[in-house]
Design a protein around this nucleic acid. Structure first.
Length: 113
DNA sequence: CAAGTGACTAGTG
DNA sequence: CCACTAGCCACTT
């Protein structure tokens, strides 16, 4: 039997997936969690992203990660209005001031062509 | 160690 | 889509 999956490993995997999100596309916490095999713990994905903001690590496009409704649930952790601005720069379609069109821009990590 | 918190989601009504 | 509940689990207090 091998080493148990470490939570630190999980964070690293989240970073890799987020780094691969294509320009002009978005994905959800749940999709990333499911791709990493921890389906029920989508919360940990958001937490992992939060850790990167504090560190000087790689500047991940974490603005491309939203909740299952396409809402910018993490916008408060960017500068005021920054998350929306970044998405608009990528031609993301907004349904509402804080909601993007997931049907149009959703990207699944498993899709990664 | 118990309880509270949170960038979530699925289920029920 | 809204309101509420349960499940989830690292972290904070």
């Amino acid at each position: 039997m091998t080493a148990k999956p470490d939570k630190a490993d999980f964070y690293d995997r989240v970073y890799e997936v987020v780094a691969r999100i294509p320009h002009g596309r978005v994905t959800t916490y749940g999709a990333i969690a499911r791709y990493l095999g921890i389906g029920g713990s989508a919360r940990m994905v958001g937490y992992a992203l939060n850790l990167t903001l504090k560190s000087d690590g790689p500047e991940l496009p974490c603005h491309r990660v939203v909740n299952r409704l396409g809402q910018l649930s993490g916008k408060a952790y960017f500068g005021p209005g920054l998350m929306e601005a970044l998405l608009r720069q990528e031609n993301i379609t907004f349904l509402d001031e804080d909601t993007i069109d997931l049907d149009r821009h959703f990207w699944d990590p498993a899709e990664a062509l």
